[in-house]
Nucleic acid binder design. Structure first.
Lengths: 153, 153
DNA sequence: CAGGAAGTTCAGTATGTTCTGAACTAGCTA
DNA sequence: TAGCTAGTTCAGAACATACTGAACTTCCTG
């Protein structure tokens, strides 16, 4: 298989993963996938559209979603009207932050349920198991220091 | 607010959380929410349908989704045709297992991208950051022992 | 200034999802 | 056996989502 074709195939796999696991629209997934692996790492909407085979309109809509979500960063160059996009340097930190927020939201919801059921009741005990699992997961992320990524030897 | 109304409100919040975060259909979310907090903890489809205000058909469809996903367990009683449902005892373990599977899938996808880009290249370096973050998250779950949930003092 | 490309917005189309009533099957009970 | 209830399946309605062409605005370039 040609290099380009292999890359597009990978982009598609990544896009579908993002669509299924995180519920992003297919085109947003393709943009993300493309920006993860493309060269140069910073490209214009036109270049991206050509690469993934989507319309200008779809690019505008989906780029906005991705930049609002802080996964993609827009950069302008002086004296140029074209915007260039790349994966935000903090994108992966953002992924972790979002994950923690989701876990704590569930945990707090479970806590509300425990209050509602009456602490100590059987119903509350059942909810406490869920609460504790989510609490454990959330704390795992917030309390474990992440080793700094370093250059491959 | 009446007790019952408060509970239904909580169920609705839980249902919407599941729908938004995990992409389950609203009714499946309501079933889950109801089964988490209802008394008795094991109820028939008819009881659940009445509680959350859904049709028999929707219950059949969504119960199947939830039992297939191992979040809900079906139990039959001898000499009775009615099926009873409750939150699976292992539901939260299942949540964790699914999460790990998702993390490793992304990590492996990133690894494929690194191979494709050529290890050591700039493109590969960019992907390695993503790879390492997901690897870290996956290992967090698999390598951290979870404290046994115990009765509240 | 005129021409053209980048970017946005919107209306319309296509597609997919979710829910229900109704028709059906099957088991319990009288 | 007849009647009632639990459960399943399916077709269709209602709704939501994703995508694009086209019209428009804006800004660079000649």
């Amino acid at each position: 298989m040609a290099e380009r074709e292999q890359v597009l195939d990978w982009v598609e796999r990544m896009a579908m993963f993002c669509a299924e696991e995180y519920g992003v629209p297919p085109i947003a997934g393709r943009i993300l996938g493309w920006l993860m692996i493309c060269d140069p790492p910073e490209q214009s909407a036109g270049q991206i559209a050509a690469a993934i085979g989507a319309s200008k309109a779809s690019l505008a809509t989906n780029m906005r979603v991705l930049t609002d979500a802080k996964f993609v960063r827009r950069r302008t160059r002086p004296g140029e009207r074209t915007n260039y996009y790349r994966v935000d340097d903090d994108a992966w930190e953002t992924v972790i932050r979002r994950r923690v927020a989701s876990l704590t939201e569930f945990r707090d919801l479970a806590a509300d349920g425990i209050d509602l059921a009456g602490t100590g009741s059987g119903r509350a005990e059942r909810l406490r198991v869920a609460h504790d699992v989510y609490d454990w997961m959330a704390k795992l992320f917030t309390e474990t220091p992440r080793p700094r990524t370093r250059k491959q030897p």
